[in-house]
Nucleic acid binder design. Sequence first.
DNA 1: ATAAAAATAGTAATCGTTATCAAAAAAGAG
DNA 2: CTCTTTTTTGATAACGATTACTATTTTTAT
Lengths: 136, 136
Amino acid sequence: MLLAPGSTPRIRITRQRQIILDELCSVTSHPTADDLYQMVRRKLPRISLGTVYRNLETMAELGMIQKLEVGGTQKRFDGNAATHYHVRCQRCGRVDDLDLGLIAGVEKEAAAKTRFAILRHRLEFTGLCPECQKKL
Amino acid sequence: MLLAPGSTPRIRITRQRQIILDELCSVTSHPTADDLYQMVRRKLPRISLGTVYRNLETMAELGMIQKLEVGGTQKRFDGNAATHYHVRCQRCGRVDDLDLGLIAGVEKEAAAKTRFAILRHRLEFTGLCPECQKKL
DNA sequence: ATAAAAATAGTAATCGTTATCAAAAAAGAG
DNA sequence: CTCTTTTTTGATAACGATTACTATTTTTAT
Ligand SMILES: [Mn+2]
Ligand SMILES: [Mn+2]
Ligand SMILES: [Zn+2]
Ligand SMILES: [Zn+2]
């Protein structure tokens, strides 16, 4: 039987999807899709890289996780879906969370200066991580 | 900007480099490498895409221009090398400058919360441009 | 003018990501 | 349960932005 018009198709909880989410939420690093692939393969050795990409994309669209478009060649993922800020090491690419409160009213300020409708903001710091400071 | 002969023994003044820089500085949009390639080809029809990429990279490393790692698949370039903020339309990808003063002391605040050495920061707003607001 | 260094055009290679698709799994109705 | 429909998967191909390569040309220094 067909679904009733207007009904929302359910998102199925597959073993693959659950483990990808579990692995992502178990770390505070901000792994790339390939990082996650390596992590998940320890529990599901037959999973394909495409499945990892597909599910990360789906979960990001549903707002369960965040896709981070920080610098570098690869995108990173964040199990914390709430807005928060990051620091990225310009030498090794490490990305850490920053325990800095959200800048109050900054979206309202921005909205007053543009005709764009502001939906969200992203603040990212660039610098050198402790390890890379030693090496330079 | 004018390339000064003799001031930097490493970088040479080529017609290609000067025109790429001129074209980038002549617009307030934030063109991709391919956008610039199309613009520059009107004046140098024989230039190669690789030359555009190579020179944008070089000039960004020298701090003459900015390479913007905003969302989307392609990187964008900015003839304004000074720190300033951007809004990006999440529907069409348009990137505008935001005439918003730099957030005072935010790098200092961040530095107090991390062991990273903070070098710079980037603030980007996401939203919908006027045209895309109409269409949705 | 000569030689050394750097940059170019043209092209191939790389690599992160998406798309495709037959097969498998999950959900629903009876 | 069985039968049917929808979603997801694994495998692989395709894509597209960027980078690498290289013989030749251009620029700069002597
Ligand atoms: Mn985070
Ligand atoms: Mn700008
Ligand atoms: Zn580092
Ligand atoms: Zn738009």
